[in-house]
Simulated assay, not measured.
Amino acid sequence: MSMHDIKKLVIASNNQGKLSEIGALFAPLAIEVLPQSTFNINGVDEPYHTFIENALVKARHASRCSGLPALADDSGICVNALKGAPGVISARYAGEPKSDKRNNLKLIKVLKDQSDRSAYYYCIMILVRHAEDPQPMIADGIWHGEIVLHPRGESGFGYDPYFFLPGSGKTAAELSSDQKNLISHRGKALTRLIENFR
């Protein structure tokens, strides 16, 4: 099966915002995008220390369980002064259960005495034609900014209220979802993936 033969694609996620964003970009290609919940697929462990390995295990798992081509992403925030942390554990930086509020509080506490608060969001997207695909399609995106100590904005999720974009003078949480999708790490990775697909 070539990439051009794909008519249905399972997304290794149940995140509604992510699903609608991905679905909109694939719509012009006449590809139906289905969440993994359609097939009662549970999440899979993400035991690796790199975004690429975790995304690949998610894509292969969703494809194996559904029998369809699958797309997975893995993303997080990387802070230069922390050697790339929180990185792959961004969603669970402050431990279980997952909590954006506790994650942000921990990050601010660690960074409050740092002069360098530069950071970037990173996203990798992996598409497999089948579970054992030896040549997955891979695209990534990076979104540069810096961490501020006081939150601003009501939109977005995760670290967005603390992720400041010097070029716009706003945090990610002060952008509309359309604005964010155009310039974010996930938006860039998805756009590159679609371009490769075409």
Rank of each mutant, 00 (worst) to 15 (best):
K188P: 07
L182H: 02
R102C: 10
F39T: 03
G167Y: 01
E32W: 00
E96N: 12
Q179D: 15
S90D: 07
F39Q: 08
R198Y: 15
G95M: 09
S66K: 03
L29Y: 04
I89S: 08
V10D: 05
P35L: 05
I194G: 11
E146H: 12
R129K: 15
R102L: 15
H61L: 12
D100V: 02
E53S: 13
N15G: 00
S184V: 03
M1E: 04
V88Y: 01
F157R: 03
A139V: 08
A91C: 05
A59Y: 13
K109H: 15
G141T: 04
G156N: 02
I22H: 15
G76M: 04
I11D: 10
L25Q: 11
Y120D: 14
T171F: 02
C65W: 02
A70L: 13
D5E: 12
P136V: 04
L182M: 06
N196I: 09
K7E: 06
H61I: 10
T50Q: 06
R102D: 11
G87C: 05
E46C: 08
D73N: 15
G158W: 03
G153S: 13
H49I: 10
G169H: 07
P35I: 00
S37G: 09
I22R: 10
D113W: 05
L165R: 01
I22Q: 15
P69G: 09
D100M: 04
L182P: 04
R92Q: 11
L182V: 10
A27F: 03
P136Y: 07
Q114P: 03
S115R: 05
D116N: 07
G43H: 14
S168W: 00
Q114C: 10
V33Y: 08
R186Y: 03
K180P: 14
E32F: 05
F39C: 06
L29I: 00
L82W: 03
I108G: 13
V88I: 12
M137A: 13
M137P: 10
R117C: 02
D160V: 06
H144W: 04
A81N: 13
N181L: 08
P161T: 02
K101N: 06
A30T: 00
K58Y: 06
I126S: 15
V57A: 14
L127W: 13
R60V: 03
Y120P: 14
T191E: 07
Y93G: 05
E96H: 12
A173N: 14
I31C: 11
L34H: 02
R102T: 08
G158N: 10
D74G: 09
Y93W: 02
I108W: 08
G141M: 04
S75G: 10
E21A: 06
Q114L: 03
F26Y: 12
A81D: 15
V148H: 09
K98F: 08
I124G: 08
F51T: 05
L190S: 07
S66A: 08
D133I: 02
N103T: 05
V110T: 15
P151N: 08
G87V: 01
L71R: 12
S99L: 04
R64P: 00
D160N: 06
S75Y: 06
N80I: 03
N14P: 00
L56E: 14
G76R: 00
L175C: 12
D116A: 00
P69L: 11
L107M: 06
D45K: 14
Y121F: 10
G145N: 14
D116M: 02
L19A: 00
D5W: 01
N42W: 01
A24G: 11
G145A: 13
M1K: 01
M137K: 14
F26G: 10
S20V: 01
S63I: 02
